[in-house]
């Protein structure tokens, strides 16, 4: 039975990585280059322009200037957005007070997991698991897990209530969203139970990860923790295949679309790609495009005048 549990653990990690990679690949493969669809403010224009939403197109003969992209501003903006949920805070404060603890709880548990993995790696390299460093890590993890799980469970319940009580939200919330939120609440509660009914959550989690690393499928001695992890495995698979995948896609939706303002003049790569894409075959059926059934590509379409007098007229 324990072997199955560990196998599910491997599957969850592998599944998450593969599904997340697939999601990103699908996005990147959807089109080699989409049209520009930026929305201002764009942070990489720099703090001065970002403050009021300005762009490089405000400059006279902008194409003669060297393009300046302030990547640090992009990073800062996405960090503020991800860590503070700034857009929700600004535009939907009633939701923010519920969703912020929920997200912070997740960040804490994700951060805790990364620290744990590092601790296990150090242990594998011979660091004493009972030494001062590891005791410090243990205390941090136990504190983070308690607080994080409480935030997830509390925030999740508050979000479910909000979605049930707000008439606008209620209409749009699907069964899957309730299942997702409910799963997080169960996950948070099980984390709290595993934390409360065992001497050290850190030790359980560390042993579990250590065993995963060393293919040692030993029992962990806590049913609460096993249940906790099983729900965690489910969530790892659910995140990339549901709208929770925004966790992964937000980067692209901000950097590539909302802030994707690179003019073709600045990109030799894009200059080539445009020519390639214009060779795609068009099958739209409306009369003004390819309605006569003649195969044609985008160049043919763009250079055909559907309003020109017909030859036989």
């Amino acid at each position: 039975m324990m072997t199955l549990f560990y196998l599910l653990g491997y599957l969850a990690v592998l599944g998450f990585i593969c599904l997340a990679a697939l999601k990103i690949r699908t996005y990147l493969k959807a089109s080699p280059l989409h049209i520009r669809w930026e929305l201002y403010p764009v942070p990489h224009e720099g703090p001065k322009k970002e403050a009021y939403g300005g762009s490089y197109m405000e400059e006279k003969n902008w194409w003669t200037h060297k393009r300046h992209v302030d990547h640090w501003e992009d990073i800062k903006a996405i960090l503020v957005e991800v860590l503070c949920l700034h857009a929700t805070y600004e535009h939907n404060p009633k939701l923010w007070i519920r969703t912020y603890p929920f997200h912070v709880g997740m960040y804490m548990l994700m951060g805790g997991t990364i620290i744990l993995v590092c601790a296990v790696v150090l242990q594998l390299f011979g660091v004493d698991p009972e030494g001062g460093l590891m005791i410090f890590v243990a205390n941090v993890i136990n504190a983070v897990v308690l607080l994080g799980a409480f935030c997830i469970a509390g925030g999740g319940i508050a979000l479910i209530i909000r979605r049930r009580e707000d008439e606008g939200l209620k209409k749009y919330t699907t069964a899957e969203q309730y299942i997702n939120l409910g799963s997080f609440v169960v996950f948070g509660v099980l984390t709290l139970c595993a934390w409360a009914f065992n001497p050290s959550y850190y030790q359980l989690a560390r042993d579990f990860i250590y065993n995963l690393f060393t293919f040692n499928f030993q029992p962990l001695g806590s049913s609460w923790f096993v249940l906790n992890m099983l729900v965690g495995f489910f969530l790892m698979i659910a995140i990339p295949v549901t709208n929770m995948g925004h966790l992964i896609m937000k980067y692209f939706m901000y950097h590539d679309i909302r802030w994707g303002d690179e003019a073709t003049i600045y990109s030799d790569k894009n200059k080539k790609i445009i020519d390639e894409m214009l060779q795609y075959q068009v099958t739209w059926s409306a009369p003004h495009i390819a309605g006569d059934g003649t195969p044609r590509n985008w160049v043919d379409v763009a250079t055909t005048n559907p309003a020109a007098p017909k030859n036989d007229e």
Partner: peptide
């Protein structure tokens, strides 16, 4: 190709907030 990445990401990622 002009709009597919934007369209698909708007189809898949809305959390109905």
């Amino acid at each position: 190709w002009t709009c597919l990445p934007m369209l698909e990401s708007s189809m898949e990622n809305c959390v109905q907030c």
